[in-house]
Design a protein around this nucleic acid. Structure first.
Lengths: 252, 252
DNA sequence: CCCCTTAAGTGCGCTAGCGCACCGACTTCC
DNA sequence: GGAAGTCGGTGCGCTAGCGCACTTAAGGGG
């Protein structure tokens, strides 16, 4: 992790949604950090020291079972934050947070976050709303794991990742995707092969390019749309600071 | 739903954990209700009007997919509450809440709950802590759905239900259990048959009696213990109002 | 430029769980 | 006490996904 040069905190939607007054109190404490793939922001049971607000990075809340099997519980990109247990209580979780896509994030010290949260103002309402969105994402993951095929889940996963990576160029091995979905690497090879055949994606050694978003949408299970709709609903009326009104529409 | 006769709000652990001052403000608004199996406390997208604090009832947060498949996302008994989205924001969820075991509960009107929550005192901290516990339950469900066998999941489910039904006599058809776990009824028949063979349970037409708790624990996946440990951790230092100190130990 | 690491492709046997169809047996209600 | 409805048991073929072993090929570093 290294300090980045030119911070633009509004790249994170939550930070951007803070009213000017709340933001002003936090701004000085927001520390830009570079996150590399594989970095652990926290490990199960460990004491959390910071909350992270991704700008371009993507972080995965990940669980590893006793037998070594793993799966993603939820993903966090520029729409959210890592470390809700800091204000929810308990300070730790039984899952870990791993960086899934390298990039920048802003971090905030535990005490600073807690203090602002406990003021009970707009920041608290925003964090709780985000937590609610996260809950619905996790619920849907539970359902998806139960009922949907690897191919459907891969499409869902590509689409959510795409929402966090505007370029559509994902840096990502099949092995990593498999560990996120909690399936075999070979299963991803097969599903991704199908998608490439259909012309929806193209990939090579650790890179996936999305060519046909709508194609993926047609193959994905309902889970993608359900979660996205819930995020939009929960954040519909919340304005973004520092973004001209005209651009707002294009962003969401 | 009908009004019950003799209310004892301390049967619900959350209500029992409220400090006297907070509880006093809510007591007059707590309305005892009888819940029957199959009652919907809320349906996806519907506006929630009350929060429910189960005493002897068990409620299931349940999701039904477009294709009609279903699964439980989390269960709520006397250790918790139904309706967190009232204070988290958004007021609704994409899942429904169905009564899974008949019994009593106390309900609180939306506005009363919100007002007390927004005071930012002990009640808020308690609700948030509970939400955190619920989140870890949901996470574990996601993992469990991905990696564990029907038999393991059945054991897990029986154990958590048992924690909410002290008698160990569950009123429950295999069909219902199957819909909770999101598997076929026949799958439950087989797994339950094994458990009965092993002498851990005995059942007949809509009734399941647990005979060997430790047996179930040995067959269950880690998920049961992980979630239970997390609940205990989060509520360890929170005392229970109206319960003699001596009894406290036995309860947890 | 070559080598070595690591990503991706393939094949194969196996099994858990699904979908479906049907039976038997218990319960409730007329 | 018979009829109807519900709950549980069983059999059978099917398939998605697993585990494992091995090959092919990309691409980065010495």
């Amino acid at each position: 992790m290294a300090i980045t040069a030119v911070p633009d905190t509004t790249r994170n939607h939550l930070l951007a949604a803070l009213p000017a007054e709340e933001f002003a109190r936090l701004a000085a404490h927001l520390e830009p950090v570079d996150l590399a793939v594989g970095d652990f922001l926290y490990e199960p049971g460990g004491q959390l020291q910071h909350a992270y607000f991704p700008a371009s990075a993507i972080v995965s809340m990940h669980y590893v079972t006793e037998s070594g099997a793993s799966a993603e519980i939820a993903g966090v990109g520029n729409e959210g934050m890592v470390g809700i247990s800091l204000f929810m209580g308990g300070d730790t979780t039984s899952s870990s947070a791993v960086v899934q896509t390298a990039g920048e994030a802003y971090r905030l010290e535990r005490a600073v976050l807690k203090e602002e949260f406990d003021r009970g103002g707009a920041m608290q309402r925003l964090m709780l709303r985000y937590t609610q969105a996260l809950i619905s994402q996790m619920s849907q993951t539970a359902i998806c794991n139960r009922h949907h095929s690897v191919e459907q889940q891969l499409c869902r996963w590509l689409l959510t990742t795409l929402d966090r990576v505007p370029s559509g160029q994902l840096v990502m091995t099949q092995e990593l995707v498999a560990s996120m979905l909690g399936v075999r690497r070979e299963g991803i090879t097969e599903a991704a092969g199908n998608l490439q055949h259909a012309g929806y994606i193209r990939y090579r050694r650790g890179h996936i390019a999305v060519l046909g978003r709508t194609g993926l949408e047609s193959l994905a299970c309902e889970c993608y749309a359900v979660v996205k709709k819930e995020y939009l609903r929960l954040f519909a009326e919340i304005p973004r600071r520092g973004v001209p009104a005209a651009r707002r529409v294009a962003i969401q």
